[in-house]
Structures are given as C-alpha cells and as structure tokens.
Amino acid sequence: MRGIILAGGSATRLRPLTLVSSKQLLPVYDKPMIYYPLSLLIELGLREILVISTPEHRDQYTRLLGDGSRLGIRLEYTVQDAPRGLAHALLLARPFIGGRRICLALGDNLFHGPDPPGRLRESLGRHRGCTLFSRKVTEPEQYGVATVDAHGRVVALEEKPTRPRSDLAVTGLYFYDNDALDKAAALTPSRRGELEITDLNRCYVREGRASLVELGDDWAWFDTGTPDSLLDAAQYIRTHQQLRGRPIGSPEDAAFRAGLISREELVRQSGPVPAPSSAGPRRGLLSEHRP
C-alpha cells in the first residue's frame, strides 16, 4: 500500500490565517498539522507517501519534510492547481500509486488512539475494496454519515443529511484497492465542479465492497477545519502529552518506534528535551520509548 496526504484546498473557514499559509502547516499545539497524519501513516507501516498541496505551498512542504530519508521513508510531492475535489487526488497520484493499494489521509484530520494503533492495522491487513473509518458524533448532520448492515457493510452514505439515519460520521482516512483509480477517473464532477469522495465511496457501496470500521471511545478524532476545532485539537494534544510524557504526532517518534531510525538519530533530530512544566510531566521524547 502507498499513502497519500491531501494538503491542498483554500481553507476559507480559517481565514485570515490561511491567507498566507497552508492550513496543514498551521500549528496544532507544538507541531505543524501535517505531522499528525504523516505520523499515523508511518505507524500503520506505510513507507512511500505522496503529499499533494497547492502550487504556492509546495516548496514549504518540501522544506519542512524533505524527501523522507531522515525518517526512513520516501516522500514525493505533487500539486493540485485548483480545488477539484478529494477524489481528484487519486488522479494526480496515479503515477505514484502504480498497481498498489491506496491509503488516503486528509491533512487536516487528527486521530489519536491506542498505541500502537492495532485496530487500524488489523483493518489494513484484511482490507478489501473500500474501508472507511467512523466515529460516533453528537451532531451527525454536520458530517458525511454512514449506515451499515449487521455485517459491517456500508449500505448508505449521506453528505450532511438533515435527518441522519445514524450517528456514524465518516472520518478523513480511507483505504482503497487499486480499482479506485479507475473509479475516480470515471466520476462526473458535482455541481460545485469537484470529484467528490462520497461519490467514489458510493461506487463501492453499490458493489457491496465498502466496509466501515467504527473507532471506539478510546479514539479521538478532530477535523481541524475551523478555529474552534483547531483550538480543541491543540488543547487535547497539550493535555495528553503532559499526561503521557511523550509526544503525539511526532514523525521522528513514529519512525523510531517503527525501527526506521536509531536512538541517536531520534535525539539528533528532536533537539533539546523540554524542561518539566508545572502543569504536568513533560519528560521528553526518550522518556518511555522502546525501539
């Protein structure tokens, strides 16, 4: 499987912050937003990842992340020159994906759960067709919503329904087989001129090849597309890092725990270990790590 992190879009809901910066480069507490999905993909075992950004921000991403070699992975970059929809990312990624399976992660979605993320890894191992991930929410009408049958197969997908049939919001992490490349190419643009990810997922629903994995109460999920959700995510990361004494969303940490870089490389890349804070324990990157 090869990974895609989608870091484009105009992010109008976060203006004026995004007038001069890409949304996925904004800080979520102490790290750029894109660090969180990148760390997750490394934890899931992906080693070849494509970052898709807008043309004006591509150089910023390459300066921040490089070619991935310092993390023991390979990073490549391409641009989406206009908002053409999430499914359009698959068309841009086709030369990179080749004949592999696909993991598409939205660069503004933050996941945090058990360490290691066993439930996601299990889904990766038995993945067929399209695998979506959901979280129960209190206001499902604000999200894409999935309805499933008794076997966990998705039977309906609705985008911000006025009367939701379930409380399962579809999150910004998607596993696809290689058929998704052809399915995306055959989509018709929506009324807003975009290739919609929901339309792609509905192709698999019609074929009976879309499954849903519900993230339990031990998982947190943030769609950091508004000032409030950005603040909520930052406060969550701050609190849990202080409680754990270990970073969340650190690519260097994820690479070290995956055995991709050595302890010496981790120390060199991470810089000085922060001093303890009166607000709680902050023991630094090496406090509880195991290779």
Results as ranks from 00 to 15, higher is better:
A93C: 05
S123A: 14
G85A: 05
S166G: 10
P83L: 06
A169H: 03
R165Q: 12
D149Y: 04
Q80K: 11
R84S: 09
V79H: 01
T162N: 13
Y61D: 07
A82Y: 10
P164Q: 07
V154R: 13
L91T: 05
T62C: 10
D115Q: 15
T62H: 12
P116Y: 09
Q142G: 07
R126F: 02
S123W: 08
G99Y: 11
E159P: 05
A105S: 09
L75C: 07
R165S: 12
R163I: 02
P83R: 08
K160T: 14
T62E: 15
R100N: 04
L124E: 06
P116G: 01
R163Q: 10
L92A: 00
L110P: 03
K136M: 11
C130D: 10
G125W: 12
K160C: 13
P161E: 09
R101I: 02
R135P: 06
R100K: 07
R126V: 05
S134P: 07
G113S: 02
R70H: 13
H127F: 09
F175V: 02
G144N: 07
A93L: 04
L132R: 14
C130N: 11
G85I: 00
H151N: 14
G172S: 14
T162C: 11
R153H: 15
F133W: 02
A150E: 14
E76F: 07
A146Y: 02
F175T: 03
Y143C: 10
P161L: 11
V170A: 05
P95T: 09
T171Y: 09
L104A: 06
A105I: 04
H57Y: 11
P83G: 04
G152F: 06
L71M: 06
G144Q: 07
R58F: 01
T138P: 07
F111P: 12
F111H: 13
R84Q: 07
S134F: 08
L86P: 10
I97Q: 07
L132E: 03
I97H: 05
T171P: 09
L104R: 02
K136R: 15
R63S: 15
T171E: 05
Y77Q: 13
